[in-house]
Write a protein that binds this DNA or RNA. Structure first.
Lengths: 246, 246
DNA sequence: CGCAGAATTGATACATCTCAAGCTGGGTGG
DNA sequence: CCACCCAGCTTGAGATGTATCAATTCTGCG
């Protein structure tokens, strides 16, 4: 179990206050949420929720990284979501979890008891509106991911993954396009493989290839330095236009 | 241009009244929607919306089948959505279309002017609530699709596609599990390939293989007869439990 | 220091893609 | 009415990218 450093009791101090499902709430709504919330901590590697589990809560990731994944009977697994701080877990109106949720790093989540949360969706407007926005964003991400899974080569997949994480990481930091940047991959090679629909060996080979060609550099196994983000973007197979960020 | 047989002016007569974005609306909300709606028809094969187009409306599919797809610069394309009657097109809060929308059969859509529709989302509850529900359903479908794209074999992909369409087709008809059923594939081999992340040749070969083994039968190129749905399900790679339908 | 998990690298197998050649069936115009 | 045409489909042979199986080599940590 990890211990949170932040004072989490006050929503106003919450690090995800302005991006999570509560982002649009007025103070009275926030109080209502506060009355149904509680925190849970998970340590790296731990399975937070098993597919098939009964869910009596929904939650927001406050700190850490988690994954959503599906497993077939013979063990093949596919990651179907990467949950970063402010991302939402669970679905109103359903009480059996359809996916495994696994903590990649130490994770803290802010849970809301399901029933009161569902009531709030019908009695107040702002939680539902924000949740809709977030669901549509995730749907877009899922569709981009489908293109990656269905049509990209292993090399393009790796480049895309690094680019996606770089973008998310530096989103708030107003990065300089074309400049150097560095990224912490929060995932093991195996998790990357599950994300990309590859084997871990193929991931390793392609990372090595990108390194050999100078498109990325490695500091340890997890930290990636991108000398020129535009060169990396050329390897993703994506349109060069459409804006380098966002 | 196709001509609609149904009287579409009255929402109460609308074939998708109870499943579309308007499903939960009270009569006053319905009147409001009625005042901002208009119909459009497209003929089979026509591109309804190009990625990058400005969208000044959102819409519901009333009749027909359409696809959502993404294309890479070199022409590789991946379908990212299959739109059947009652499915929703567009996204409140965005005015550039991110995907191509193509009519597979003749299609009729019920369009809502975007601005009034967006206003309605904040002033009345039921459209937004239904839209959230639909978005979450689509997200689930997208995630199942990701497993298919990332981890299933060509044979499993084909079997899954037929099973998915069979399920959707017979959803309302309360089919007998284990019994024979027949399905119209609304898609060409190429569209199936784009759906599944395969080439059309591979699709053709796998369909032939399933036919050769008696798992499916063909009437013409498009109509599929499934002698035993359970046998087909065994080929999808999915868990056998979890209920054959739903 | 040495272990265990993580990652790399190599050799080979195999599923799917690619390129190429026919087939089929429904529509059309002579 | 029939031959032709053409998009959609099937089938074949060979190429290729990724998976699989199998050693090593790192690296962080007790």
């Amino acid at each position: 179990m990890n211990k949170s450093v932040i004072d989490l009791n006050e929503c106003t101090n919450c690090p995800i206050r302005h991006r999570a499902v509560c982002a649009r709430c007025e103070t009275d709504e926030l109080e209502q949420l506060e009355s149904m919330k509680y925190y849970r901590n998970y340590s790296a590697g731990q399975t937070m929720i098993w597919a098939g589990d009964k869910m009596d809560f929904v939650a927001s990731v406050v700190v850490g990284v988690a994954t959503l994944s599906q497993t077939m009977e013979d063990g093949r697994t596919q990651m179907v979501g990467l949950l970063l701080p402010s991302d939402f877990i669970g679905r109103p109106g359903r009480d059996i979890a359809p996916y495994n949720v696994t903590a990649v790093s130490d994770v803290t989540v802010c849970c809301f008891r399901k029933k009161p949360f569902e009531n709030m969706l019908v009695t107040t407007p702002h939680v539902g509106q924000r949740l809709l926005e977030m669901a549509l964003d995730e749907l877009d991400a899922a569709r981009e991911w489908m293109l990656l899974l269905g049509r990209k080569t292993a090399r393009e997949k790796i480049a895309s993954l690094i680019a996606i994480i770089a973008r998310r990481d530096n989103e708030a930091k107003s990065a300089i396009p074309g400049g150097q940047m560095s990224v912490d991959l929060p995932l093991t090679r195996e998790a990357m493989a599950d994300y990309l629909g590859l084997t871990l060996e193929t991931v390793s080979r392609q990372v090595s290839a990108l390194k050999r060609e100078g498109i990325i550099e490695l500091e340890g196994k997890r930290r990636v330095i991108i000398p020129d983000i535009d060169v990396l973007m050329d390897e993703t197979g994506d349109d060069s236009d459409g804006g380098p960020l966002i």
